[in-house]
Computed example of a mutant assay.
Amino acid sequence: MEVVNSMFQEIIEFFVTVIRYTPKFIPGVIMTLKLSVLSILIGTIFGLIGTLLKFSQRKILMKIIDAYITVVRGTPLLLQLIFIFYGLPQIGITFSAFVSAALGLAFHSGAYIIEIFRGAVESIDNGQREASRALGMTKWQSMRRVILPQAFKRSIPALGNQFIIAIKDSSLASVITMTELLMLSKQFVAATYNVFPIFFIAGCYYLIITAVLSKALQLLEYKLKVNEREMKDVKSEKIVQVLWRVRSTKGN
């Protein structure tokens, strides 16, 4: 009976702690969202620029991008954040904790986004490049108007995974004094000594954020597929109309 009562008291204490501290995580959630959105945007820009440079056919630029990817993939994100926040000030370059975290996460994500875009671009049939060049487009016009729009559609699932990873990686910003979800969790645990309910709340918030992002990306992917099907239907209808006119002309 005592064991049952003890378990019942622990369950009550768990829910009381969860209800009490859930609203207190809101500032950390907002900071995590700001950090994640900014790092994803900057990382995507890094990735797009890096992809264009990688396909520039200039060996120096290609080697610089390859070196960037090698460094990022070969070193831990935690080390990169520490280097930006604690290492760069040693040579006179100082950033705030927020800017350091955003740049570090963007720098890290950008390398993986380059590889995502590269694979998507290379998956586009080479005939489309030749057709666009035959129409008088330059190499960059062909890339911007023909290749990249299709590559972006194909890369959405992989980009979605990378964006979710970036949100979860934002928890590492706590090591450079960023007061986001994980830092708040540590502070609340130190104040209450209730480890499980506090980290349970943090985990729920991360789960909600990533679930919302996943759903938004699924809707975007579905929307792009619908538009692509509609364009194919319009093209097919126009082809049928042309063939019907040709037949009618021959019949007359």
Rank of each mutant, 00 (worst) to 15 (best):
G47K: 02
T51V: 11
I42Q: 01
L182H: 04
V175H: 10
P23Q: 11
I164E: 03
I30S: 11
L61M: 15
L52I: 12
L38N: 03
P76D: 06
M1R: 07
I91E: 04
P89K: 08
T138F: 01
M178Q: 06
Q141T: 11
G87Q: 10
Y193R: 11
D233Q: 10
V72R: 00
L182A: 07
G47N: 04
I198S: 00
S174R: 05
L38I: 08
S96H: 04
L184Q: 01
F200L: 12
T17R: 07
P149D: 14
V240E: 11
Q187N: 14
K139L: 03
T210R: 03
L105Q: 05
I45A: 13
L35C: 09
M7V: 15
Q141M: 13
P89V: 08
L53R: 05
L224D: 04
L103P: 01
K63P: 01
M143A: 10
T51G: 00
F98Q: 15
C204L: 15
R133E: 09
A102I: 14
F14V: 11
I124S: 02
F25D: 00
R229P: 03
L33W: 08
Q150I: 10
I69C: 03
Y205M: 13
N227H: 15
I49E: 06
I82C: 06
Y112G: 01
K63W: 09
I114V: 15
M183P: 00
I113L: 14
S123C: 09
Q80H: 09
Q128C: 03
Q80S: 01
D233T: 06
R20S: 07
Y68D: 00
S56M: 07
K215W: 15
F117R: 01
F163E: 01
L217Q: 09
F196S: 07
I93H: 05
L52F: 05
Q218I: 11
Q141K: 15
L78F: 08
V212S: 09
L77M: 05
A120T: 07
I82M: 13
W140A: 04
T249E: 14
M183Q: 08
G92I: 03
G203W: 06
L217F: 12
L61C: 07
E228M: 05
I82G: 01
D125A: 09
M231Q: 15
V242E: 08
L52N: 01
V212C: 10
